[in-house]
Amino acid sequence: MNYEQARMKFICDEHRCIECFGCAVACSEAHDLPVGISRRKVLTVFEGIEGKEYSTSIACMHCADAPCQKVCPVDCFYIREDGIVLHDKKKCIGCGYCLYACPFGAPQFPKNGAFGTRGVMDKCTLCAGGPEETNSALERQLYGQNRIAEGKVPICAAVCATNALLVGDAEEISAIYRKRVSSRGKGA
């Protein structure tokens, strides 16, 4: 892997996802997310329609040229060299603009501001924490685990029983996915 150009991405193989919610539950547990916040979601479309039904798992896609970063009025996003899109919760004002710009509905807002109002934004960090000191208590409290710093795979992909959820360098995981598609002869 050419780390210099690595762009971390998620792919969910819809032909393998069995809607077990393992990734979503593992994510919420690993990062101690508040009630009502699910950084990762499992969705089923065409439910009950034979041949059409499929499930997929979605979270922040860590976009290249991330729209969320472009619209943030306080400029609190930063994109790591490996392409992981993170933000600074100490700067965020919870305005919601990133959500309006995001193609994937990834940013969410816990109601933990003053008087139960909307708090600052929360989203998937690709298990890479945030701008606080790596693996510090504060980082963990604000952003959850920093598994990337520990050399671990993000928890969602780590627990995926069918290996439907792939994470890693965009080129590499696309190659894996393409190989799967050609060997089973369907799904793109």
Partner: peptide
Amino acid sequence: MVFGRYLGGGTLVA
């Protein structure tokens, strides 16, 4: 809020 980035965001702008 519009010019929040020049104020550093955070508590003040929130």
